[in-house]
Amino acid sequence: MRQQPGNNIARDAIKAWRITASTYMVVLWLLIIAGGVVTFIFDFTYIYSVISIIIGVIAILIFVLLIPKIRYRRWRYEIYEQEIYIQHGILIMTRTIIPMIRVQHVDTKQGPILKMYKLATVSISTAATTHEIPALYEKDASELRDRISALAMVDEDDV
């Protein structure tokens, strides 16, 4: 587990993740606004509304602005002839080695937000684990999928 892997994932991942996080924030802010309206109608103390607005702002700063960026910066992968090497994690950094001959199948998938930026997720399964590389450009993702499955076929000794 030497140096970190060489390749970054697609830079547009940050935008895609920000949109995903924003949808959650919309829900959060709807709740905050609803709380504010209730407070206004029933004449409760405003302190709770103020606190919830502060929390909402902080949540936007953290989950929309900060985390996608750090996540992108941490996410790295490298595909060798014999193995796949992945690094990710915001608070807990994880590095994983998956030998090619242990790979059972490789999938790519794409939700509506990823599709907007022409991105896709590659997931790699062994007999015991599943690993995901999120947000590669479509072209890279399918190329990677084909390459991994081609390499994975080479040697198939007993389980």
């Binding site: 608070l91 950094m93 994880t94 590095r95 994983t96 030998p99 242990r102 015991a128 690993h131």
Partner: peptide, 16 residues
């Protein structure tokens, strides 16, 4: 060696 499907190293900030 050949039975191990994947290996992972995890580190949080303090551990790092």
């Amino acid at each position: 060696h050949r039975r191990v499907q994947a290996m992972e190293k995890k580190q949080h900030r303090l551990q790092q």
